[in-house]
Simulated scan of single mutants.
Amino acid sequence: MELSFFNVKDGYLEALVRGLRSGFLSADEYRRLAQCESIDDMKLALEETDYGMFLQDEPSPIPSTVIGQKCREKLANEFRHLRSQANYPLSKFLDFLTVEKMIDNVVGLIQGTVNKKSPQDLLGRVDPLGWFPEMKAIASMDITSGYEEIYKTLLIDTPVGPYFESFLKQVTPADSESRSMQEVASIFNETDLELMKNMLKKAWLEDFNAFCETLGGSTAEVMGHILKTNSDFRVMSVTLNSLNTMLGSSQQLGDRNLLYPSLGYLYPEGTDRIRKAWNETTVRAALEPYKPYAALFDLCAPYYSKERSGVTDIKQLKSLEDLIYEKEVELCEFAFEQQFHYGVFYSWVKLREQEIRNIVWIADMISMGRKEHTEEIVPIFRPRY
């Protein structure tokens, strides 16, 4: 049944996104970028790729931040072209991809208003994939009298409202049936913004997974594997990054454990074991039954160890985030090996985001005169032998 009807509704867009796969930078194109002597040389080299003349209106010298923003704008424009032609349920699936970026944008805007950044500066840094009109109002709000106006806007007028409501339910007493707007503002005032963002992402991830399960078929299979694996990565990342912080202390373990998604291959037994872990030894013991994750932990453990034992050159160390980027690229590449599913749309976006990180990294290394590090990227669709 799936093979019979998928192409009727979504075959054209799937073919289109598979065609966009050919636009990823090749190994030779990365080598040409790495050989550039300046950002202007990179601009010329990129003109010969799928990126084309996207920097033609930018005056020299071009900062690497501008290159990254222009790349994201190109991705957002291509994504919107796909979204404009999508029917339900693909349209809602694509909307889930934008909501993740909306969460990043909203938290970034709030942080910027706290630091008294100008609205123009804040809006110039948002991810265009997660743009929505109310962001202009958030960036212009005066928070000197509190956060009430911002959160009233977030909870009522924006696509991320349901996730903020989920966040409030987790941080307020279970018997609290109603909350005044002043109480809402007080909760947000007292919550660390990074902690808030992670809790919002957790709610989004669980919601996205539930939606993919309702789709069934190959989409549920492919996306289920990707989202479960990413959930496990999130559990490991939160745990390791909290070890040497207040969240790693016994008093704050409750706050840390709120960030763990209720899905994944670790869930529930492995997640319960990790909830009780408070140092590297107990984390490693909790991961022992899960060999792939235990091996991943062993690779990045020296990076998080205070002693850096056994490592004389810190450049040899890789954080869990570095390793996750590599693993996520593998997951998304394999999604293209199967047909008739929505996972290729998710994978194309994530692979393009990694390519943008690669381009910005190379630009940064060239700007700093450290060209020997330009090869420290995660290539996309490298040849398999």
Rank of each mutant, 00 (worst) to 15 (best):
N198E: 13
N189Q: 15
K202W: 09
M199W: 07
K201D: 04
W204E: 04
M181Q: 11
M199S: 08
D175K: 15
L195C: 04
R179C: 03
S231K: 02
N189H: 14
T172I: 08
S176Q: 15
A185I: 12
D175A: 15
H225G: 00
G224Y: 07
L215S: 01
L215C: 06
V235Y: 12
D232Q: 11
T172F: 03
S218K: 04
R179Q: 11
S186I: 10
M181I: 13
I187Q: 07
V222A: 03
L205M: 08
N189C: 07
V222Q: 05
T219Y: 00
N198T: 12
E177T: 14
L195Q: 13
V235G: 12
S176H: 10
F188R: 09
R234P: 10
I187W: 05
K201R: 14
N209A: 07
F208T: 05
K202I: 10
E177Y: 05
L195T: 06
E190G: 02
K201M: 12
N189Y: 10
I187G: 06
K201G: 01
E177N: 14
K197Y: 07
S186R: 08
C212Y: 00
F233D: 11
V171T: 11
K197G: 01
R179P: 03
H225W: 05
A185P: 09
L193G: 03
F233Y: 14
M196L: 12
S186W: 02
A185T: 13
F233V: 13
K202G: 04
S237R: 14
